[in-house]
Design a protein around this nucleic acid. Sequence first.
DNA 1: GGGCGCGGTTACAACGTTGGAAATCTCGCG
DNA 2: CGCGAGATTTCCAACGTTGTAACCGCGCCC
Lengths: 342, 342
Amino acid sequence: MAAAKLKDVAEFAGVSIKTVSNVVRGVPGVSDATRERVLRAVRELGYRPNPSARRLRTGHSGLIGLAVPELTTPYFAELAHHVRAEAAGLGFTVLIEETLADATEELRLATGVGASLLDGVILSPLRVSPDELAPVASEFPLVLLGERSYGHDRVVADHVLIDNVAAARDATAHLAGLGRTRIAALGVDRKASDTSRQRLQGFQLALHEAGLTFDPRLAPLIENFSRHSGLLATRALAALPAGERPDAVFCFTDMLALGARRALYEAGLRVPEDVAVIGVDGSEEALYATPSLSSVIPDKAAIASLAVTCLVNRIRSKEPLPFEVHLAPYRLDARESTVGPA
Amino acid sequence: MAAAKLKDVAEFAGVSIKTVSNVVRGVPGVSDATRERVLRAVRELGYRPNPSARRLRTGHSGLIGLAVPELTTPYFAELAHHVRAEAAGLGFTVLIEETLADATEELRLATGVGASLLDGVILSPLRVSPDELAPVASEFPLVLLGERSYGHDRVVADHVLIDNVAAARDATAHLAGLGRTRIAALGVDRKASDTSRQRLQGFQLALHEAGLTFDPRLAPLIENFSRHSGLLATRALAALPAGERPDAVFCFTDMLALGARRALYEAGLRVPEDVAVIGVDGSEEALYATPSLSSVIPDKAAIASLAVTCLVNRIRSKEPLPFEVHLAPYRLDARESTVGPA
DNA sequence: GGGCGCGGTTACAACGTTGGAAATCTCGCG
DNA sequence: CGCGAGATTTCCAACGTTGTAACCGCGCCC
C-alpha cells in the first residue's frame, strides 16, 4: 500500500488539497466542521506528510546536525542525548555525525551535508581552524561547542562552552587544598587545542595561587583525550623517582583520568593515598570507578539547551543575528579519589 | 548566495538540465567532452544536489535509521559508530534515534519517521512485541538487532545477533573452570526480554554441565542493564551470609558487571580473590577497570556489517525478500577479574 | 542515395507539498 | 432584496530533481 498523500485525504474528505494542508499544519482559518472531517480522513488513511516534499517547498527540513569527534566518548554520547531531547522539544530531529577529529570532515559536515539536508549544525570542533569556519558560519546556522577560538576579540560563530580556565583552576585548587604539592597536569595536547590550552592556563593559575611552582615534567604531552593516552602518560609519571613523582593528577578529561587510574593501579600506587586523581566531564564511568573519581561536571543539559536554542533562533530568524558566546555552569564533585591528606 | 541548482550548472555549461543530472549521477552515455565541461561548471558553481528534491523524485533518501535504547550505553555508542562506518561505505547516512526503552517510541521509529524520511531502519528492540513489528517489517525495510523473538518458528523480520545461549554458556563455563561453585547470574530482566532469557538459559546449561545446581537466590531480578541495577543487585548478594554468598558473578552486560564490581568494592570483597566477575559487551570501560573485567565480546563490526548489508539489500531489492537470521561471532576475553583459584 | 540504427542530447511531466491570489460562500445591514 | 466584508475554500504555480520518450545528426548498409 502506497503512503497516503494530501490528494487522497482531500478526496476522501471531499475538500481541496490546500484545505487539508492547512488543517494538517494547524493554519488558522478553517471551520471546525471542515477540520473535523479532514482530521477523520487523515486518521482513516493514516496520512503522514512527506518530509522531502515539504522541505523542497519550504526550504527547511526540521533536521539539525550534531557533529562530535566520536560517539564512543561518553561525554559526547551524553551530550548527544541531551541535544536530542532539547531539539525534540522544539520540533527538530537531530542527525548525529562523527568527525573522528579530522579537519576536512569537520568542515564538510559544517557545510556539505548541512547546506542541503540540514537546517543548521552544532559542531564540536577539534581540528578545523576558525578561518575556515568563518565563511561557513556567516551564511549557514552554526553553533560551536567548546573551543572558544581566538580569544575574545574575534567571534566567528555562536559558541557554547564552560569557563575552562575557571574549571581547571577549581580542580587544581581542590587538589592543592588536600595538601598535595606535586600536582601533575594530564591533557596538554600535542595539537594545542583551545580547550587544552585553557585548562593548562587554569592549572597554572591555581598552582601559582597555592604557592606551588610549575614543573613541566609533570605536564606531559598527550596525543588525544582517550583512556589510552592517559594510561601511557601516567605510566611515565609513575616511573619517576619517588621524590619527583606526582602526588596528584589533574586530568583534562575523565577518560584521561581513567587511563591514569589504571596506570597507577598497574604501578601499585594507591588512589588517593599515594596519588589523588581528578578529571573533567562528569561521566558515569568515573562515578562507578574504584575508587570513584572526582570530576568537574559541566552541566550538559544546559550546554545542550543553550546550543539548540541558539541554533534554532538563528534558523528561524530572517535577519542575520550577531554571534553570541554562552557560558554554561559546571560543578566540582569531590569523590573518593580526592579525599584525605597525602 | 543561494545554492546552485542543476539549472544554473546547465546554463553555465551550455547544456540541458538533464545532461547535467546525468553527469552528476554518473549515468553512462555522455560524451567525454560534455562531461568535462559539465564537471567544470559543477566545480565552478559549487553545485551540490538537493537531497529533498532527489528524494521526492526517486522515492528514497539515502538515509537509514538506527534506533537504540540509549546512546549513553557504551555498547550502543560503539555499535552506532560501526553502523555509521559501514553505511557510509555503501553511500548511506545514518540517523541515530534513541527509544529510551519505550515500546511506543520503538514502534514509532520503526514506522513513523521511517515511512517518509528513511529508506530503512535498524532497530534494537527492547519492549515492542513481534506482533506489532510484523506488519511493519512486511512493508518497510527493517532489521532487528539482538532479541531473536519467539524462537525459531516465527521470523517476522531480518535479525542480526550473537548466539546468546552459547555466549552465556561460555562465560559461565569459564567461571566454573576457575573452580567457582556458587556462581550468580546478574541480568534476569523483570520484563523477561529475549536476550535476558537466552543468557539465563545458557547460564543454566553451563551450570548443569559443570555439575552445579541452580540457586534462584543467585539470580536476582533486575530493572535494566545499567551500572545502577548491577550495583543494587550485587549489594544484596554481598549481604548474604558468608556461606551463601557467590564466589563468581556472570553479568549479562558489562554495565551490570561494573556496577557489581563497585558494590563488591564497597562491601570490601576482592575481585577476583573473593568474587570473580565477567560481563558481556567488550566495552573499553571494562578493559580499563581495576581490576580489568573479563568480557564476552560480540564482534560489533560484524554485527554492523551484517545489519547494514542486509538492510541495504532489502532497500535495493524490488521483490520482497525472505527474512534472514544472521549470527555474528563473539569471543571471550579473560582478564584480571577472572584469574586464579577461588 | 535513402532509410536505419545508434550514440548523444533534449523537452516534458511528475514526485507531494505550500504560498499567494482568486473564487466562493455567508451574513448582516441598508 | 441587493451589496459589501469577512470567513472559508479553491486554483495555480513553484520548489529541484529524475524517468520517459522523443529528437537530432551521422555513418552504414543494401
